[in-house]
């Protein structure tokens, strides 16, 4: 357990440094800098140099990075170049939306994906082949397009869900659920297809194992064999896949939040990117890396729970 935490800590620090360092280097490579961007065409050379000094842009890159890092450790991630809101507050206001979106999508993926995989593993033949084909379609269609189709059908035509926007759970729980339903499904669609296939393979593999035959020989009911024994064993490889998929889900929020105009981090970074609001982009990148690091820990711990073989050396 100690070893696991130590490994995680090392990996996490590496990831955070890589992401923030990469961001910094990229930004420094940019043609023109923040001072120029803020001033636009109108600024004089004096104004430009003054602003550069004020923003600390005249310092060499490692010094700037170190300053920024120290600020981050104090909880200060700089401020938006346009609204002058502190980045930490922008992030704090929005992180909840993104987390709910990702957690919701993960739950839907795990439950629906595994259920479909189970069905396709046990019902060979026509139904299994249909599910395979569906899963092929699921991974192939662009999820943002699928989201738009859902909006067109369910929100615009049938008026079952709000077209866009977010309702905070404090305002109305049912409204919150309704406002999240389509974004969650949109974000989940590709993952469902992937997990369905993986779960199908994992479950089929487990069903062919000797221990299944032995359990049958001991008179254990088919229900317990499939839902207790096989599922728990199949969970081992699936946890790894779900963990990797989570990282993709964070990426996916960028598109999904834009489609549904959700006030989350993905939407924030798209807006900031369009405006070249670099401090905000840097801050959000770091926060995404932090979220990845946290979920990695959760996944590692979960893997620990489902796989007894790694628990003892």
């Amino acid at each position: 357990m100690i070893r696991l935490l130590a490994r995680w800590l090392v990996n996490s620090i590496m990831l955070l440094l890589v992401v923030s360092g990469l961001t910094f280097v990229l930004v420094s490579l940019a043609p023109g800098d923040a001072a120029r961007t803020i001033l636009g065409q109108r600024g004089t050379q004096e104004q430009y140099l003054a602003l550069r000094e004020q923003l600390g842009l005249d310092q060499p890159l490692p010094v700037r990075y170190w300053d920024w890092l120290r600020g981050v450790l104090r909880g200060d991630m700089g401020e938006s170049m346009f609204s002058h809101d502190p980045v930490s507050r922008l992030v704090a206001d929005r992180i909840g939306v993104t987390i709910w979106l990702v957690v919701g999508a993960l739950l839907v993926i795990a439950v629906v994906g595994v259920a479909l995989g189970m069905a396709s593993a046990r019902l060979k033949g026509a139904i299994g082949r249909c599910l395979d084909a569906l899963s092929m379609v699921g991974v192939s269609i662009p999820n943002f397009w699928f989201g738009l189709v859902l909006v067109t059908l369910l929100s615009v035509k049938l008026r079952l869900f709000p077209v866009t926007g977010y309702v905070y759970p404090a305002e109305s729980v049912s409204g919150w659920l309704r406002s999240l339903a389509l974004p969650v499904v949109t974000l989940a669609i590709g993952g469902i297809a992937v997990i369905a296939k993986q779960a199908r393979d994992a479950i089929s593999t487990q069903l062919d194992q000797e221990y299944v035959l032995a359990l049958r020989g001991q008179g254990i009911s088919e229900r317990s064999i499939v839902y207790r024994h096989v599922l728990k064993n199949a969970a081992v490889p699936l946890t790894t896949v779900l963990g990797l998929m989570l990282i993709g889900l964070f990426s996916g929020t960028v598109l999904v939040e834009s489609i549904f105009a959700l006030p989350g981090l993905g939407g924030l970074v798209v807006g900031a990117t369009t405006q070249h609001d670099i401090p905000v982009v840097e801050g959000v990148a770091l926060v995404f890396a932090l979220m990845v690091v946290t979920t990695n820990l959760v996944v590692d711990l979960l893997y620990h729970v489902v796989n007894p073989r790694i628990r003892t050396p």
Partner: peptide, 24 residues
């Protein structure tokens, strides 16, 4: 191998956003 392990943990879209915001 270590570098690749870290690369796997990077949310691609976010880095792409950084790149796009910098290089337009």
């Amino acid at each position: 191998s270590r570098v690749v392990e870290v690369m796997f943990a990077i949310p691609v879209m976010i880095i792409v956003m950084v790149v796009v915001s910098v290089f337009s």
